[in-house]
Amino acid sequence: MLIDLPRFVNAERPHWQALEAILKRFENDPDLRLPIDEAQRFHYLYQRTGSALSRISTFASEPELKQYLEWLVSRAYSIIHGQAERRRFHPWRWFTVTLPTTFRRRIQAFQMSLALTVLGALFGVIALAIDPEAKSALMPFSHLTGRPSERVAQENADRGKRLEGRKTTFSASLMTHNTKVAIFTMGLGISYGLGTIVLLFYNGVILGAVAFDYVMDGQTIFLLGWLLPHGVIEIPAILLGGQAGFIIAHALIGWGDRRITRAQRIREAAPDIVTIIAGAGVFLIWAGIVEAFFSQYHEPVVPYGIKIAFGCVEFAGLIFFLWKGGANSEQNNSSKA
């Protein structure tokens, strides 16, 4: 095709500049919604620039121009063909509706997380029952390697003073550490889920071994009073990390969903992954506060009965929240559809 390039460029440049101006508006405000006439103009400019790119693409004379037009067309393409609707973020609605409904929609990944942790716990119980000497290998934490009854006696004598003057710091450290563990459990989903499997199983082994150790030493009540108040939130939060990890793995592998490309599967799963891991983060903030300011107090400061009851109420609340949260909104949406 023979064209008079300078004349062509002079004629077309105003359209390219107009397209660039609209693109800049989009980039400065990702929530921008154009009125219909402007949207039509935007689409027209995109098509016209695409056509110009096609016309000059065989020319050697203006490689920079070609690069510039490619840049314009690709940016316009990403806006036109990207997700059409971007809703404003409402934290309360996200927590009460989006989080529980997403959790239920992806329940299989959570069930897998739970099953692996339970399997790990069983393994921990059996391993410690068969070989009590393996305790230090199964529980690589210094405060857990001694006899549970000795620790209980020490904690009772201490009356919660061990953390005096540094409870807030302890709470903050717990929040950040556990959130890192949850993110890590999710991130290992990139290994097609293998890393997540190993981590969840290992967490289960430690949990099972610790529980078995305390039960066999006759410290079941202390164990429940110590673990339940924060554990009923903290452990499910880590399982949520595992759930997010398995969603990543599922999107990578594409079991039962090979109609679309891996990139599309990941794009579709991404909002759910973020919702679930952010939910885990919220739960871990609560768990960190409870662990630092409540779990560390034992009898006679706080009766075990109260601690266990508190843990049970929390757990019931969590199950109810995840099971029923946002159900009305979900029903309304399905009836509208």
Binding site: Q83, I183, M186, A270
Partner: peptide, 18 residues
């Protein structure tokens, strides 16, 4: 080549840990 979504930004940055 589609529009970058906030969820993608969050995931790519959280995975810095790995």
């Amino acid at each position: 080549g589609l529009r970058l979504e906030p969820s993608q930004v969050i995931i790519r940055n959280l995975l810095r840990l790995v």
